[in-house]
Amino acid sequence: MPVSPPPPPAKAKITVRDLTMAYGSFVVMRDLNFEVAEKDIFVIMGGSGCGKSTLLRHLIGLREPARGSVLYEGEDFTAAGPEGRGKFIRRFGVMYQSGALWSSLTLAENIALPLEENSHLAPMAIRDLVSYKLSLVGLAGYEDYYPAQISGGMNKRAGIARAMALDPDILFLDEPGAGLDPLSSRRLDDLIVRLRDSLGSTVVIVTHELASIFAIANHSIFLDTATRTQGATGNPSELRDHSENPAVRLFLRRGGETDPSSQSKS
């Protein structure tokens, strides 16, 4: 075997190296190391308050790491200045945990705003795109509603539609399934997979919905509250059945410590 060190894998879309996240002196998570490959559907899991949203905020550059770095396709995102980050950020689509729709704009305007600012499309084309995005999340016809006039779950879905506005290369979704009925939640899973397949997007999702984790995720990280570092990374079904970390197995089985062989088909 050749002794030269292997070149860094070119495929990794996101690389996180030794990331330590803190609010002031309060360390949320330390020494996170993981990679997200292109076209992955990557899930961030962990107990409530363990730092999933915080990790997302670090990935999209809303917070600075206390230590470590985030790389996109091998390029250092953390070290890049504000101008350097612009070209990364333009490829992101983000849905925030609370929706964060602009409350003084209608749903159509919420989705149209990024399109108007980032493309030279004719108003008609923008309108068609907006209707299409709203249709994808099952909100066709709600163009002229204000966020305050629709339900919580609808707000969530509209937030997803806005995150998809620019056909982002990387889609970050913070608990997209929370507050959705099982059917909508299922449709959302479907939508995420189809988006990945048709546009080639990479998707990073924070979610607790075990059903959708097993259905769509091919890679995941588990943040362990007890040790304040990553508990495991890997394919969720494999983690459930074979992880060495009992906390991970417990989490993925909703606390029931049944024998893996009785649960999985194998």
Partner: peptide, 14 residues
């Protein structure tokens, strides 16, 4: 697949 998803929920014309 995307078209099917978009058409799955009829437009809320009201």
């Amino acid at each position: 697949g995307l078209m099917e998803l978009a058409l799955a929920v009829p437009e809320e014309s009201d």
